[in-house]
Write a protein that binds this DNA or RNA. Sequence first.
DNA 1: CTGAAAGCGCTTACAG
DNA 2: CTGAAAGCGCTTACAG
Lengths: 338, 338
Amino acid sequence: MATRPTSARTITIVDVAAEANVSKSTVSLVLKGSPLIKGETADRVKEAAAKLGYVYNRRAGELRGNASNAIGVVINDLMNPFFAEVLVGIERKLVDAGYVVLMAHTREDVALQDKVLQSMREQNAAGLMLCPALNTPRTILKTIQSWGIPLTVFVRNLGPGSYDFAGSDSEEGVFLATSHLLKAGHKQVGFLGGQKGVVFTQRLAGYKKALLEKGLAFSDDLVFNANPSRTGGYEAMNALLSKKPNLQAAVCYNDVVAFGALSAMGEKGLHAGSEFALMGFDNIMDTAHSNPPLSTVDIRPSELGEQAAAILLQRIQDPDAKRLVYTSQPTLLLRQTA
Amino acid sequence: MATRPTSARTITIVDVAAEANVSKSTVSLVLKGSPLIKGETADRVKEAAAKLGYVYNRRAGELRGNASNAIGVVINDLMNPFFAEVLVGIERKLVDAGYVVLMAHTREDVALQDKVLQSMREQNAAGLMLCPALNTPRTILKTIQSWGIPLTVFVRNLGPGSYDFAGSDSEEGVFLATSHLLKAGHKQVGFLGGQKGVVFTQRLAGYKKALLEKGLAFSDDLVFNANPSRTGGYEAMNALLSKKPNLQAAVCYNDVVAFGALSAMGEKGLHAGSEFALMGFDNIMDTAHSNPPLSTVDIRPSELGEQAAAILLQRIQDPDAKRLVYTSQPTLLLRQTA
DNA sequence: CTGAAAGCGCTTACAG
DNA sequence: CTGAAAGCGCTTACAG
């Protein structure tokens, strides 16, 4: 599209003012729908604006008013549908509220994360939503706080502190999943996928808690670490199958890990459900029609995103409110794998 | 995070100037690394800036210079991992080039799309990347052109025209997939999923072309329309199985449709590969470890995203260049379903 | 109900 | 090599 601006000069508020025979103050006022201006005048201004093809220059306006309608959201692993669903929820809520979203993907790179955050700051973001990359130092909280930009952390927390947060009750979720398997009669349950980090620790805690409740001992041999991805799940399941051939049940770190596990099982001709019970975590949309449909822990990803955004919006409204937190309460969703 | 700006007053270029004992012009110059300023002076300015915790106000700068480092990208179906992968490719390329991305998700809603596009315009976006919502009128091209903002359309084209575009050769891809099935001896091949639209038309054309080459007649009865989603694939496969019980092969509109089909087959105890041959399209990462691993047409989604972004970058550099196009050449990727 | 003026934080010729 | 001045397109008191 070899194109260039239609008009050499961008048309501004003063052009509109001239066309409508009013001052630019008046134009500004009608543009923001001020009730101060007489309807008749307002109409004339609107006509003039339309006629000239005027387009509001938001950045100029914001410069004077020192406001901003951009909100930065940083995601780490968009390849995981869970985060895509959360992002969609966030985006919807923010756009509905009249904001525009500055999105960045950091693929777990802390240095990149610093860079994009800084960039969002320069853009004068009205707020920041952060799902911290693995190994993000807690100091990021103080840093952003010193910037004076409202922040809400989501999905992965940054340890204790008074920052706003939206996430799910990971411990409870895995507790539910593990307990379900135990109640079904399994004496041993594996834990598949995930790696050191706050969320992993919480999920593993839920697993241990369920074991404890049944008077069962926790054994490190039954946890198979791996990337929280399909590939990771595939590898973890293969490891489990070769090292613990008698195991017939496992809870997964999340749904994509479960999908990878399903793939590994399929290769061995192992039928999920009847021959090996598997539980996922998240309830991403894909689980409804996976092969076979996955039993999982439902934390309603897109609602989580919306709630996270709602928290940020609230914080922007009321900077002095006390800590805002949303915790998605997990529920068991049994389909065909357990 | 009940927080508020650390300093009541934001510190600006004039504060830095005062601290460093130079004029604000000088500060501005050193900030953008101008070689005009003596090293010694520059150092002094940088120190002053660091000491005061100065942060560049990009929007103010852009107002005067009329530039912008924000690029808008609008996506329609982030729930489909294909688009997530494309988006990640786009984002990476853009951030590397020093841009920030304004992202919007329109879930195929043309009105919403208009709204977010308009919003990006107000933000003074330096460029726009659009994967048009279904039923987007071609006039959107003229509209954006009249705005004078460089545009690149990706994945879904908008019919003939001279706009920049990055996509894949859909017809060739499906031709390859269908031909593969035909060569394997299948006399009849179904077409699963997808709905009216440019891409659908192209893919169906590839299917027809392969049939024709083998001297086979095209029959409408063998195409099963459905949403290009897992659920759609699930439904389409169920329809196929009940209406054409003798069919043993199908090409899918895309990978997620194939996943849905796999789910439906699993329910019926139908083994993909040996009992029913299935081909996907896209080669999203998930296909490597699906159950079973999917045979598909590889169009390298994230590279497609990067190339699309590269085109926009080029257009920004050279507004008068002739039409820029990237077409991903599909290759067959055989795994276990065909 | 509307206008004249100052200012947001930067950049860009223009001098010197 | 550096400074004084004007200006980017808006908004916001302040008058009237």
